[in-house]
């Protein structure tokens, strides 16, 4: 118990582009207009937490594009990162660098630089004990567009202090899982709909046969794609309805926007297709300019894929070992 220190925190030396605190999300309030937020890659969140000995649903830092530099103000802690193959945690003052998917012990006044690499949109960073933040509507997730949750409702800013929980976990020196990083799949499997009646078969086929490009218009609300124009018979007067994470809405100009966890709970554009839940985990591995395609499957196929995906995740979680 000598490791316990009063009010430990991480000082933000540099906030990076858009880093925020996220957990699995704020569910149960969408009927009142509260977007769920939370991480897209729920299973990666579980793994990165397990790597530092945390409860698998503890809140983590989501690094969207470039990463922050943090100064440790705690006696010690275990940290870990899940990101692309070129991402890393660098302890600048000790000239140490570790790959994603393993943990490392850090000490008082260590300077941690999170390199998100250039292949991934999103990486996740965990620290043993987790962040000491009050939950808002049951979640620590940040929604910067409505200034809610996390650290003052926003992204990490220079010189902010991120309060940590006293690290009472009895962690190991370092942990690694026995797995390779997932395949670089650029094909997203979708279920057509919900607004099947707003698109002709030709338009749906065009949507499925187009090679789409990820544009620079990216944030936690959505990702704009370019590559073709999809025509819909829905006009300006379409009644707004519920938005699902992973749905692809078609704007009036015919361009698709992939809806992410901070999107409004309802929207007035027709949604042509919805990415299946296990493929949401692939969204963080996208990057600007990348080509992606959509492949239509049915609900039964989606179920099988999800069961297999859960099985793999559980296998990784149970394989995490000391080194």
């Amino acid at each position: 118990m000598t490791d316990i220190q009063k009010d430990p925190f991480l000082r933000v030396v540099s906030g990076g582009q858009t880093t925020s605190l996220q957990d699995k999300g704020r569910f149960g309030f969408q009927d009142k207009g509260v977007p769920p937020s939370g991480v897209l890659n729920q299973n990666a969140m579980k793994i990165v937490n397990k790597l530092v000995g945390n409860n698998i649903e503890e809140a983590v830092l989501e690094i969207f594009l470039s990463g922050p530099i943090l100064e440790v103000n705690a006696k010690n802690a275990l940290v870990s990162l899940i990101g692309s193959n070129s991402s890393s945690i660098e302890i600048i003052n000790r000239n140490v660098k570790i790959r994603p998917g393993r943990s490392i012990k850090v000490f008082e006044k260590d300077i941690i630089k999170i390199n998100s690499g250039n292949e991934n949109l999103i990486s996740l960073f965990s620290i043993s004990g987790g962040f000491n933040v009050t939950k808002v509507l049951g979640s620590k997730s940040t929604n910067p567009s409505v200034i809610m949750g996390g650290f003052k409702g926003g992204f990490l800013e220079d010189n902010m202090n991120l309060p940590l929980n006293n690290n009472i976990h009895k962690y190991h020196e370092s942990l690694i899982p026995k797995f390779k990083s997932h395949d670089q799949v650029k094909i997203f499997r979708v279920i057509i709909g919900p607004h099947v009646d707003k698109f002709s078969n030709d338009e749906i086929n065009k949507f499925l046969s187009t090679s789409w490009k990820v544009t620079k218009d990216i944030n936690r609300m959505g990702i704009k794609l370019t590559g073709n124009k999809i025509n819909s018979i829905a006009g300006r007067d379409m009644l707004s309805d519920g938005n699902q994470i992973g749905s692809i809405q078609i704007t009036l100009s015919g361009e698709p926007i992939l809806l992410l966890p901070d999107r409004g709970t309802i929207g007035g554009y027709p949604k042509i297709a919805t990415i299946i839940s296990s493929d949401l985990e692939l969204i963080p591995s996208l990057n600007i300019g990348q080509k992606i395609r959509f492949e239509s499957i049915n609900i039964d196929e989606a179920k099988k894929i999800n069961i297999e995906f859960e099985r793999k995740t559980n296998k990784i979680l149970s394989s995490i070992i000391k080194i």
């Binding site: 309030f29 009927d31 009644l239 519920g242 938005n243 309802i266």
Partner: peptide
């Protein structure tokens, strides 16, 4: 049931 999102035309059950 995780979430309920009502609108004027339908109810989305997540």
């Amino acid at each position: 049931i995780i979430d309920l999102i009502p609108s004027l035309s339908n109810l989305l059950v997540v």
